[in-house]
Amino acid sequence: MRYIRCNFCGATNLRSRDLCRRCGGKIAINPKSSLQTAFAFLVAAIIFYIPANIYPILETSKFGTPEASTILEGVIAMYKAGDYPVAMIIFIASVLIPILKFIVLFYILFSLWRKKCKKLEQKIWLYHLIEFTGPWSLIDVFVVVILVALIHFKNIAIIPGIGATSFALMVVLTMISALSIDVRVLGEKCER
């Protein structure tokens, strides 16, 4: 192909250029470095997924007795209370989507690495889906921020747990991993 799309601004550039004619960013495809960066951030994200789910995301201390709840415990509590839609939203956004994202990112990285061209369009669609839904996993972290601000009594204190920090870090690292994947590599290598 004669032309290449700038990842940053979307401009069409001649292949022979080094820098984008419009935004001045680098336009050359460098499959190796983008793969390594994305992989490193993905592994880091998976590491943080563990404390994010084991440690409490919210700790309440009622009359001095601390009570902690992890994301899953929160979902179960809401389900038992009858808040089915919200329990579902939280479960999908905080537990399911991160795992699905890890799997999809691994799958895409593997295809990039092995230059597999099967189901190219689905892969690119999945990539865009992940890029779009990525930050929505932060709902749980923001809920903690909101509850901490709203609920303050003499005898009830709400404390954000280690889980919340790990969770936020996990989401940010996954986002950076997804953003450092150059989907053009998929498109390029497989073009006819």
């Binding site: 919200v86 939280i90 929505w136 709902i139 923001f142 809920v143 921020v145 509850l147 709203l150």
Partner: peptide
């Protein structure tokens, strides 16, 4: 996302 989070937080405490 924060906007949706407010709604979720309120559902948790509306009772």
């Amino acid at each position: 996302i924060f906007f949706v989070s407010i709604l979720v937080a309120l559902v948790k405490i509306y009772e």
